[in-house]
Nucleic acid binder design. Structure first.
Lengths: 222, 222
DNA sequence: TCTTAAAAGATAGCGGTGTTATGTCATACT
DNA sequence: AGTATGACATAACACCGCTATCTTTTAAGA
């Protein structure tokens, strides 16, 4: 009348091993057989716990969203909301560079071995934007940005930084237009485009650079 | 002393069939066996002509770059360089939406069944930016953009539009921040960020919208 | 024109993938 | 204590990219 309980340790081990393989060796290293072997179990474990490889990938995607949320949570609110906004951009990039193989699965149009995001998955991703939306609101309140719909302002920042990070991960950004150089120009342009003055935007982005280097440590390079 | 010549018709047929499968059914439909079967030949043809599946994918990527180049070539040079710049952004997006499965392989960090871009491949992609670089120069000459390095200005536009297109293809842009709405806001923000006034930027982007709808026809929706 | 070398292409196989059918066994409730 | 039920192991299926092997075709040289 009562079944055998599944081992939660096995479940966690599968996710951890999958994440490690994805991180260290890339998407091609992900296979039910290899993960099961490293976990000391059989491929069936992947199906009982996750319903298949897609379910396991989905679990790693959710872990990726949690990491992005944590990264955003480390951004402190200061009296310079524009510098804060720039810092969110840096934090977003930092998370992507720390998880270079996971990021394209989360936000790229990419399908990994048939895996495809569901609308619910994407909603988890969009949820992380809320911090940026609030920050955009503070920029408008402080008269640094012109009056606008905060969601759209946040989206513009997201699109711009996502584009940079995406092409950076694809090795498309080379000298003299390196990702570092593009990021600074991109952030300043975003702030000016949102309504800030060139002088104030340049200053706040520079402030955020110093603050980010101090609080977060040097950005991890791949 | 002379070998049998390979049939160029077979080669073209393989590329065409591969492109059709990728376009209609997505990356999972691409397989040597299926392509060979539809071409009425064997899987070996893929290896004699392209050295493997990767070579065939590379051929399709180059075809994608040619299409982007052709799309850019249709952008006419007018006396409003800022409107021209916006039109390049629309053309870029149009090409991506017309080839939704090919685009992420060309510019996404994505690897399709182990396929990875070479530095030479990426150089072909970057080459298409030259039109935009020239256009940025005209914007600066016309005093619409502030003095800046034209390559960096072009990169900022590329990154921003790529980010939009990339997330649009990933179905991340939904009401009320649809890709259409984001594009208009993004383009205006870009022009202002590059130095244009809010008034002039809004006008030129609107001009480019009308021109694009007229010259290019309605944008293809997926 | 005939010979022949060399590459094209067909066939079959290898090792790999995700997934599933089947069988065994541990477990928690009646 | 007995039993039903789901976790897990094993093995197989259909597919993948790729390659070794073989046959066939072709065009250059004699």
């Amino acid at each position: 009348m009562s079944p055998r309980r599944s081992d939660p340790k096995t479940r966690d081990a599968l996710v951890d091993i999958g994440a490690r393989l994805l991180s260290l060796e890339g998407p091609d290293a992900l296979s039910t057989r290899r993960i099961a072997a490293e976990a000391g179990t059989s491929t069936m474990a992947v199906y009982t716990h996750f319903g298949g490889m897609n379910g396991l990938v989905r679990e790693m995607v959710y872990e990726g969203f949690r990491r992005l949320r944590d990264e955003f949570a480390r951004v402190t609110v200061t009296d310079d909301p524009v510098a804060d906004a720039a810092t969110y951009g840096r934090a977003y990039r930092r998370n992507a560079l720390a998880n270079p193989h996971l990021y394209p699965i989360m936000f790229g149009g990419t399908r990994l071995a048939g895996f495809e995001l569901t609308e619910e998955d994407r909603q988890h991703g969009r949820y992380n934007l809320l911090d940026v939306v609030n920050c955009a609101g503070r920029c408008i309140e402080a008269k640094r940005f012109r009056a606008a719909e905060t969601g759209m302002v946040a989206h513009q920042m997201w699109l711009a930084v996502h584009g940079l990070v995406s092409l950076e991960l694809g090795d498309y950004l080379i000298e003299p237009w390196t990702a570092d150089a593009c990021l600074e120009a991109q952030l300043v342009g975003l702030m000016i485009g949102a309504g800030d003055t060139e002088r104030a935007a340049t200053h706040s982005v520079a402030v955020s650079a110093k603050r980010f280097a101090g609080e977060f440590g040097a950005i991890a390079t791949v």
